[in-house]
Nucleic acid binder design. Sequence first.
DNA 1: ATAGTTGCAAAAGCTTTGCAGTATG
DNA 2: CATACTGCAAAGCTTTTGCAACTAT
Lengths: 146, 146
Amino acid sequence: MSIIDKAIAHFTEELGERGLRKTPERFAILREIYNLGGHLDAEDLFMHMKNQNYRVSRATVYNTLELLVEVDLVKKLQFGNNITLFEKSLGYKQHDHLICTKCGRVQEFCDPRIQQTKSMVEEFIDFEITHHSLNIYGFCRECRKK
Amino acid sequence: MSIIDKAIAHFTEELGERGLRKTPERFAILREIYNLGGHLDAEDLFMHMKNQNYRVSRATVYNTLELLVEVDLVKKLQFGNNITLFEKSLGYKQHDHLICTKCGRVQEFCDPRIQQTKSMVEEFIDFEITHHSLNIYGFCRECRKK
DNA sequence: ATAGTTGCAAAAGCTTTGCAGTATG
DNA sequence: CATACTGCAAAGCTTTTGCAACTAT
């Protein structure tokens, strides 16, 4: 069973549990995100759907993205001030992001230390963590050369 | 010499070096941020200035905030989707933030591990770091009790 | 004197909302 | 068939921009 099929199955189940309707738009958007891959914003996604002659509205794109974030199929990323991107999350291991402020490129990286930090926070500050966001900004290798 | 005086001195120097004018509005905004303390957004700051009968415009508040971030006197924080807050940074040691998604409260915490992560990124990924943002979201002690 | 800055209001950009029509369960 | 969901366009919010007036140097 491929990742996309697992995602669709999970979405179907969640929609059922929540008493929400299984509309074709919702599945089309999920499929598009998983097929495209990478990081994309709401407008990108909307245009991609339009270009393929899907009849979807911006409102539905925004609503569905929010829903997909809620059921953990998509992660919402916030970089800098007004850059919001989304990425598929099923089958992805935990990672954080490096953002090049010159060329805008986004790289992923992993460091288990963040897990230790989170454990420390839960234990000593008595804070119940739902999620985190670690972004490191600077210049990527290519931009440093120039 | 108090923190605020150091901040003013630093700002004066930076403005001089950059050939920018030392306008009363710029210093008034800097003073307001350091006097108020805590986390505040652009609109808060604008209203505070207005209430004290300062004659400043929103544009100047935004421009000056950006300038203060550039000269490292103020840090810009981005929480969730559309929450941008600013905090004074002179005399503050490095820290990150815990954001309660129920009551909106923002707590600060320190963990030296983030420095190790940054060193690792610089060394092994060849990425030149300028700054980072680590936000942990969840429920604070008070909200967990309810 | 002369640019850099400011205030004001309009514009821009992204996201949400209202409403009438549509289609899921 | 009832009503959750959709498309469309208008409205909302925060931030930016354009321009005439002002002022630091």
